[in-house]
Design a protein around this nucleic acid. Structure first.
Lengths: 162, 162
DNA sequence: GTAGAGTAGTTGCAGACGCAAGTAGGCCCC
DNA sequence: GGGGCCTACTTGCGTCTGCAACTACTCTAC
């Protein structure tokens, strides 16, 4: 006992990573099968769908997601190639580019979301309603500490602090 | 409201993934800088260090980690190349191989763990002691549902059910 | 206005991964 | 005891990723 190899915090970090990776691979598989979208694409599309004008600056999108700017460039390349999103120039800053959802892109998220929710629910049945909101708040604390930039519209704001 | 694009469960899944990915990149960076180990290597080494005889079958190791068998093969190749682990034949099944920690490998985990714990603690300060154990139990439920195979020694057993 | 510093996004390159096919060994049953 | 089926691990191949270097533009100070 007292062996640092068995420290509780290692267990916690391990569980966080394992559950996230496991969930991602399960959801990704199902989404791919049922909608032909990778989880990554879905993630990008839904973030655009929730943004005003269905558009977001590249940098903003990169900050919200798991990707570096370089990774985002290629991901957007691929999505553009299949016509789900498009790039448009930013009028106020000619260096910048917007990624904007095409109609087809929006149509696809719209149909994918309910299906994805079914998959997700299958994995969340192990948690009660109150456990879910507990978990959400705990994770939010970690996320905000670990990647504060993701917050703006990474997810909808919680009840704001008074 | 009621828009499925804003469903609470999407937020929850998003937070789980974002916090895990964020944590991983932060911890990986620090560990790399301070110990010269990637998080992946550290993960493999510590799993071996906790196993009887500092050894595990390849398949078991693959199940516990984030890797497919093929990915594990290469990861072990690389670790073998730098002398942190070695492969040994399994006497009872000549198809199988054990990955076993070398002395140097064990020495490196031993010194890396306390450093890693410091890094980890920096991110966990946002949670109280009781929040940590709450979070641990919630995540364990998800992990067990999403990747039951990881359980055996993926982490130490919790208080067993009576 | 223009030099210099900083920022947005893209690309060359090398490393790592997963899938599917391959190899080698175990296991069962006739 | 040997054909057929399964399992453990490895390898070929295509894809994706991040880092660092690069281009193009903006902003500040003079």
């Amino acid at each position: 006992m007292g062996d640092p190899l068995d420290d509780d915090r290692l267990t916690l970090a391990g569980l966080l990573i394992e559950s996230s990776v496991g969930l991602r691979s399960q959801l990704g598989q199902r989404l791919e099968d049922d909608c032909g979208l990778s989880l990554q694409w879905f993630d990008l599309l839904i973030r655009l769908a929730r943004s005003p004008g269905h558009r977001l600056r590249m940098a903003e999108l990169a900050a919200q997601t798991v990707l570096t700017p370089s990774g985002l460039t290629r991901a957007v390349d691929r999505l553009e190639e299949v016509g789900l999103i498009a790039r448009t120039a930013c009028p106020s800053d000619r260096r910048g580019a917007f990624a904007v959802l095409t109609d087809e892109g929006f149509r696809q998220v719209r149909t994918a979301v309910p299906i994805h929710l079914v998959h997700l629910e299958e994995h969340l049945t192990v948690l009660s309603e109150s456990e879910r909101s507990q978990l959400k708040e705990l994770l939010r604390k970690i996320r905000d500490h670990v990647n504060p930039k993701a917050r703006p519209s990474g997810e909808l704001a919680p009840n704001p602090q008074p």
